[in-house]
Each structure stands twice: as C-alpha cells, then as structure tokens.
Design a protein around this nucleic acid. Structure first.
Lengths: 247, 247
DNA sequence: TAGTGGTCTAGACCACTTC
DNA sequence: AAGTGGTCTAGACCACTAG
C-alpha cells in the first residue's frame, strides 16, 4: 500500500518536562551558584527570554513559580528581585510562635554555649554527613518581650559552615548562612510534640522542672535540597502558641 | 488652543480587580449556592468561556486559582471536578497527627457524649453567633492503630446544622457538613499549645493525669468565610507528632 | 515619559483519557 | 478519533514605579 511507514515520526514522549520548568531549574541553578545573589535585581522578562531563547510568557511562568517558592519577589513597575532573609521574612515564613495577645516581634537571643563535636549517629543521619564528622552545636535562649520563651539547640555541619562558631553568632542565623556561606534556606519541615521540661531546660526558662513545653524538631532545607541545619526548640506555651494554617 | 479636553476619557482606575478574579468569585458563588456540588464535572474551559463571555485563557486562570485553593481538582484529559471531602483529602489537608514510625491511617472515632446547650461568650465569639444561641457539643476519642490518641470537643451552631445531633454521628464530619448541609470547609486555622492533661482527659486516653499533651485549637472556615466549627483536641504525642511544613 | 510586571486575548500544538 | 486540560507563543493593552 501507499501508507507511509509510521517509523518516520518518533517524537520522544517519555521523560517529558515542560519548558518553563526547565527554565525554572536553570534559574534555581543561578541562585545556587551565586550568579544571582540576595537583593539583586534580575534582568527584565524580555531580556531573560532573549537570553534563554524562549518566549516572554514562558519566562513569566518560570519566575511566577520561583515567586511562589519565596525565592524571588516580584514588584509591579520595579522589577524582580532575589529574596533576602531579612527579619520580616524570617518572622513570617519560619517563626510560628506568637503571643496569645498582642503583636509578635523578632525574638532576642542569648547564647548559652557553643560546642564543637563529632556527629552522632542521629546528627549524621539528619545532616547527611558521615558519623563522627565535625559539627557545631549552639545552645541559646530566645526571649519575646523580656520573657524567656524558647531554649533551642542548633546543630550544623562544620564542613558546610567552616569557622561559624569562631566569631560572634548573630540573632538571625539564616541571614548569616546566606551572606557568608552562600547557603539559602528555602523551606523547612517541623515535627511537634508535647513534653515535660528537663531540669536544665526549666532552669533556663525560669519555670519548674516537668513544666509542659512544645518540642519543635526542625530540619532546614537549602536550595540544593540538602539539610542545612537541625534545630530542636523547647517552647513555653503559657502565654504563647504555635500557629498553623491548613489551606 | 486645539488640545482636546482631557475629560473626554475618564477610565475608572480605582477599585481595579482583574477579570480572572471576578470570574473566580463567580465560580465560588456557584459552589456556595450549590449550583456546583462536590464530585460534579464542570463544563469545559471553552464552554465556560463562552458562557461567561471571556477568553479561554482567563477561565483557565480562574480555575487554576480554585485548584490552588483545593476547591476543584483538574485532571488532564478528563476534566475539572468539584473537590470532595473524602477521607484521603481530609487526611492530607486537615489531619496533621502522624505516627513517629510507619504509615498514617484515618483515625477511628468513639463518641463519648453529645450535648445541646446555650452558646457561652467564648463559643459565640468563635462561631459568630449570639450568646445563648443553641449549640451542639460533641466529645469523642479518636484512635490510631488500636491506641486512643486524641480526645476532642467539637462545637457547632445548631442554627447552621439543625438536627445534626439527632442521628448517628459519622467519623468524617466535614463530609457530612457538605453532603447534608451544603457547607464546604475550605480551610482552617490552628493554634497549638503544650498542656498537662486533666484527670478526665487522661482517663479517656488511658494515661496518668498531668501527662503532657498537645492542645490543638482549630477553627474551620467555610466557603463563605464564616467559622463553621470550633474543635479543641488534646493529643498524646508519645508515639505520634504533628507535622508542619514551612514553605 | 519610559520601563517594569500584570492582564487579556487568540491560536497552535502537546499529553492524557476515553470511546 | 475525539475531547479534555497543559504548554508555548505572540501581541496589545493596563497598572505601577521612577526619574
């Protein structure tokens, strides 16, 4: 017969990934590499489209996706900017403890101790590092409105953040990770439990041992998908609570 | 001079609301009215566009917004459907207590008591009803894997859900609200605290009084923005935890 | 006034599901 | 083969910001 062989048109259908997602991945890589740094203004959509070789509408979908992930901020009339870990963003995105009554502010911090050590089995598993590799453990108390409310243990890999424990440790750690080490915390996973405070935690918070507290186990995930930090917080919830919106 | 008066073109700029959002609001109203009911297949984008009088792309943006709010489900090749409150969705969207190890299942329920009463000041404020108006209070224990884990108090307005307490009370309340009363729970706000269990709660859960527990105060918000239900849960977190993703 | 992101439209084509 | 939602493009126009 005259029917042409169907082998003439073999369009590859498997492994299909939309163009705008590929462009998004390209842009994320620029953030990981540091070619785009926090606060920087991106080229306009038209310029990016010409550079990447797609239409302006496709660049828009990619940038909208990044804006949805809080990685960039878009402002009509001004441009698109790489998101920064300023206090306002941290407060809104990562700090879920608020007073029962009144406004929430950024918590003050007082360092109890910093300690270098070898990663335990648990720490190694969480941080994706070998058992026994060097880690830094920070113990601090955080206060809201002159009242100590949280005692927390921050654990991170020294191979990722070399020399972090040597100098002053600022209140806003995520901002330090970004500016000094180029590590951007993109999102976090938290697991919550109710516990009775240990004697030492109770002392740090000025209550009796055995007092109920909220235990928050947080893993902060960086842009490249690795766990940048492990943070375990014990929070008093007598005059504060943890907010969670189910959407 | 020959310059035309600028008063000839007074385009109203204030109160600007994008067309696709107006279309979205129109569609939400169809859900509130019950013209679109859970599980129903919507007309195709082309048909909706012709009906509303906008382009297919604008209808798409409106439907995408609804899909983002979990109000509709879009399936390529099949169509767009009104979301249902089936167990899988409830589990994923509203049930955040999971076992420390293993898979999570839908919790079984055992009713402790149902009680009709007059709304207290607190209940009236939460439910948006007058003080003293009739309310229904349901007390029940929920179990995960043969182990009682949660004791909770559900409070709702009888004017919104008349006769709900008369018959059998099902495990999945949100599905009942939707099918029998046309009330769709769209999202919820939760406030968490750590507490010591009261004697009666401890007995219901089979632990000692004073045992630490997670207190969850949830207000379920319906499609029209009112609070449909107030639920206060006390959860054991010895072998379970509450998950919260910070994105 | 110029430049940016935001909206709206129109059409072509692709991937998925069902018949 | 037909119908659905998903992607990609192109162009016009609108709203916002800055100089």
């Amino acid at each position: 017969m005259s029917s042409p062989p169907s082998t003439a048109t073999p369009p590859p259908k498997l492994g299909f990934r939309p163009l705008y997602q590929q462009v998004r991945d390209d842009f994320v890589q620029r953030l990981v590499d540091g070619r785009w740094t926090p606060g920087q203004a991106l080229p306009s959509e038209m310029e990016l489209a010409a550079e990447v070789g797609v239409s302006q509408g496709t660049v828009r979908k990619a940038l909208d996706a990044l804006a949805n992930e809080n990685l960039v901020v878009r402002r009509q009339g001004r441009g698109t900017f790489v998101a920064e870990h300023d206090e306002a963003r941290i407060l809104f995105q990562f700090f879920k403890i608020v007073p029962d009554k009144g406004e929430s502010g950024f918590p003050a911090s007082r360092i109890l101790s910093t300690e270098r050590g070898a990663a335990t089995y648990a720490e190694a598993g969480v941080l994706g590092q070998p058992v026994g590799s060097p880690v830094l453990r920070i113990e601090r108390v955080r206060s809201l409105g002159d009242r100590p409310v949280i005692v927390e243990t921050v654990t991170l890999a020294e191979t990722v953040f070399p020399g972090l424990g040597d100098g002053e440790i600022p209140n806003n750690l995520y901002s330090l990770y970004a500016t000094r080490y180029g590590v951007t915390v993109a999102h976090a996973q938290e697991k919550l439990k109710a516990i009775a405070l240990t004697a030492s935690d109770a002392t740090a918070l000025g209550v009796a041992a055995g007092h109920p507290a909220l235990l928050i186990d947080r893993r902060a995930i960086s842009l490249d998908g690795t766990t940048a930090e492990w943070r375990v917080s014990r929070c008093l919830t007598d005059a504060h609570h943890y907010v969670s919106d189910l959407k």
